[in-house]
Write a protein that binds this DNA or RNA. Structure first.
Length: 739
DNA sequence: TGAGACGCTGTTTTT
DNA sequence: CAGCGTCTCA
């Protein structure tokens, strides 16, 4: 018998950052509590992953069957890593644990048990682009948004419909609350939603929300399946619980109802996904749903040095929500975080690359360094600089491989092979034929739909002389793809033979560039045993687009990581750069409501807490916009408001060099440097500059009237078209209209 | 009815 | 600057 991983706590409870095999007392308690509900409040870097890994191993070691354990994580990668580490601790039986995202597990369950809901096992998962495509079809079929008429675009419609699902709100209430300017469209949106629902059901399609909703339905009283589904697992763990929404919380409840053996782990200070319906209050509500919940706090940080933690504590301390944790580190020594103001974006890129080069020379591997940013496009300049200097990098977040038109084409062919009812994909591939437009495609589809053998029906269609050949070529190719002896990679090879000529005609101006994506696709497909799994993953775990030449440079080798902050969640690096921390870029200008701004603050907190040894926070002082005007960029208020002494200021010392303000194309506010700690901060204007009754203009809400002063820098404004909004003058671009 | 030119708009974050 | 939708011509 092997020695237990878990000697009694009395023997080895000592927290030791040196010997990381050992758990501290709280971690130990979390890892060894087998039965009953447990809520773990885990601060950043507090060893949460390690705790979960040990708990999985402990459950198995104490006799819980691995296939009875469910581990829900935020990404598939996280689940894979945890399970592989747990295997390392114990043995390979851990591999039978079910792990993955809510969406991936839902997919698995629904392919087995979705028949009762009216779904065949070969349903296709829609990504956001697919959903938008269908919405567009429906929109035009309903005659909405025809020329001259005002109607929300597909992107907005999908966002609204999805939010109403994920927030579990009626459409009317959501519009009222978040989109008052769309109130007039409520009726039409409801019609679109109803048609969308029917379309998906008829064509065997599920979007991301459906995966969750339908999992929840499996657990509802509507069907007799609850005991079966809930009986699949006896022990459930949920990571990143602060980023679950109400449906996910309901799923957890339904799955654990019979045994209450459920552990959720989260950190309310790191909740950054409310835009897709997440609500960190799920954490607070958990003990009410599961009585006698044991609450365990992990507050000791093993990741970062104390200087870095002091700064991140400072960032989160400014939040309006009061977070109870105050993290402390045992690593007291370390370099203070650096705030670097660069002259412009190019200067910022140079600074980052220079510093990385220097660190690399000191022996720090590139893969121990990450550059993080708010939005995908914030790294464009840096990517150029890295390419010039031949530094290999890998970009995470931002554009996905599957979002480019030519890759969507290829996937559409494969999708009709697995799901012949997928009308959206049929439509797409028919449109690729010369002389076939929307009208013809529709006629063909109507003839093919419902046919016993769609491919044969396709070939039998009385095509016009101009496109008969093309249609036959398509039908023959699809027929050959159905060969059961063919592996997915073989299917792709056959398909590409057919597609390449079309591809070169359609993308005649840049097909060489796009061609490398098709090669990339081949290597990805080689790793799959069934086409269905590949297609599922293109929606559930879309592969990143190859960045450029440098991507091949060190495949599997030492590469710098560039990532959006959202995609960096849960990860850590020795050295972290957070770039573009300029007012106007961070917080994102779209985030004007107070709760949204608070989430942006947490986002910066998440970014900064990724750093172990070194943290660099940079911003450009001058940003060139598309219209070639220069915009003055001050440091983000989240950092500018920090007490001095938490960081070292570089790049001139001041956060806004005098002189730049004069060149600012449109000064937003009269300079009032009086109150702010940093000398020349541009933003601001105190609330008393906007007395009650002042007419103001906001770049989104339009014209309005100040109704009340809510704080020293906060005003309440009534906008006739949007209602009353509370605006913080540090963030909202509020313009005073003189009578 | 399809193909192509032209003009407009708008750029978070992700399963 | 590109991706989308609209308009016009063949």
């Amino acid at each position: 018998m092997q020695p237990s991983l878990f000697p009694s706590p009395g023997v080895s409870p000592a927290p030791s950052p040196v010997n990381r095999q050992v758990l501290n007392a709280s971690q130990f308690e979390a890892a060894t509590t087998v039965d009953g509900p447990v809520l773990v409040i885990a601060g950043a870097g507090s060893g949460k992953t390690r705790t979960l890994v040990y708990r999985v191993a402990h459950l198995v070691e104490s006799g819980v069957a691995p296939e009875k354990i469910l581990l829900l994580t935020f990404t598939r990668k996280a689940a894979e890593e945890m399970l592989s580490r747990a295997s390392g601790l114990l043995n390979d039986s851990v591999r039978h644990v079910t792990g993955g995202t809510f969406h991936a597990v839902a997919n698995k369950l629904l392919r087995r048990h979705g028949a009762g809901l009216g779904f065949a096992p070969n349903f296709t998962i829609l990504d956001q682009g697919d959903a938008e495509g269908i919405i567009n079809l429906i929109k035009s079929s309903l005659g909405l948004g025809a020329a001259g008429k005002r109607f929300p675009n597909k992107h907005t419609i999908v966002a609204v419909l999805s939010k109403s699902v994920n927030r579990s709100m009626a459409l009317a209430d959501l519009l009222d609350d978040q989109y008052p300017h769309l109130a007039d469209f409520a009726g039409d949106l409801r019609r679109i939603n109803e048609d969308y629902r029917k379309f998906k059901l008829e064509h065997g399609l599920m979007d991301y929300d459906d995966l969750l909703v339908n999992w929840q339905r499996l657990l509802s009283d509507e069907f007799d399946l609850r005991p079966t589904i809930a009986g699949l697992f006896s022990h459930i763990m949920v990571d990143e619980y602060q980023d679950t929404n109400q449906i996910q919380a309901a799923i957890v409840r339904g799955m654990a109802l019979d045994h209450h053996n459920v552990m959720v782990v989260g950190d309310d200070a790191q909740s950054i996904y409310s835009f897709r319906g997440a609500d960190f209050r799920n954490i607070m509500d958990f003990p009410a749903i599961f009585p006698h919940t044991r609450i365990i706090r992990l507050e000791e940080n093993y990741r970062s040095t104390q200087p870095i933690l002091s700064l991140t504590n400072g960032i989160i301390a400014q939040a309006t929500e009061k977070y109870t944790k105050q993290l402390f580190s045992t690593i007291t020594e370390g370099e203070p975080p650096v705030i670097h103001g660069a002259r412009d974006e190019a200067g910022q890129a140079r600074f980052v690359v220079d510093r990385i080069t220097a660190l690399h020379r000191q022996g720090i591997p590139l893969s121990d360094i990450a550059v993080l940013f708010r939005s995908g496009f914030h790294s464009y300049k840096l990517e150029l600089e890295l390419t010039n200097r031949q530094i290999p990098f890998e970009k995470r977040g931002g554009l996905k491989l599957t979002e480019s038109a030519h890759v969507k084409d290829v996937i559409a062919y494969l999708r009709v092979v697995t799901n012949p009812a997928d009308r959206l994909s049929w439509n797409r591939i028919l449109l690729l034929l010369d002389k076939v437009g929307p009208k013809t495609a529709r006629l063909v589809l109507d003839a093919v739909r419902g046919a016993e053998d769609p491919v044969a029906a396709l070939k039998a269609y009385p095509a016009g002389p101009g496109w008969k050949k093309g249609l036959h070529g398509l039908a023959d190719t699809l027929a050959s793809l159905h060969d059961p002896g063919l592996a997915p990679s073989g299917q792709l090879d056959l398909l590409l033979e057919y597609y390449r000529p079309l591809f070169e005609r359609i993308y005649y101006d840049d097909y060489p560039r796009r061609g490398s994506d098709l090669e990339h696709l081949r290597t990805i497909l080689a790793g799959y045993d069934t086409l269905q799994h590949f297609i599922d993953d293109t929606a559930l775990e879309p592969p990143q687009a190859a960045t450029d030449g440098t991507a091949d440079y060190g495949a599997g080798g030492d590469r710098l990581i560039l990532s959006t902050i959202h995609s960096a969640k849960g990860l850590e690096w020795d050295t972290v750069f957070v770039i573009h921390l300029a007012e106007g870029a961070f917080p994102s200008p779209q985030s004007f409501q107070p709760e949204q701004r608070e989430e942006e603050r947490r986002l910066l907190y998440v970014a900064a807490t990724r750093a172990k040894q070194r943290l660099y926070l940079t911003y450009p002082r001058e940003i060139m916009a598309v219209d070639r005007s220069y915009h003055h960029g001050a440091l983000t208020p989240f950092l500018a408001d920090l007490p001095a002494g938490l960081y070292r200021a570089e790049g001139g010392g001041d956060f806004a060099a005098p002189g730049f303000a004069d060149r600012c194309a449109t000064p937003r506010f009269p300079a009032s440097a009086s109150r702010s700690r940093s000398p020349v901060r541009q933003q601001g204007g105190d609330a008393d500059g906007f007395p009650v009754g002042t007419e103001v203009r906001h770049n989104f809400f339009g014209q309005g009237t100040v109704r009340a002063i809510a704080g020293p820098r906060t005003v309440e404004v009534f906008f006739p078209r949007h209602g009353v909004k509370t605006l913080h003058l540090d963030y909202a671009k509020l313009e005073r209209l003189d009578p």
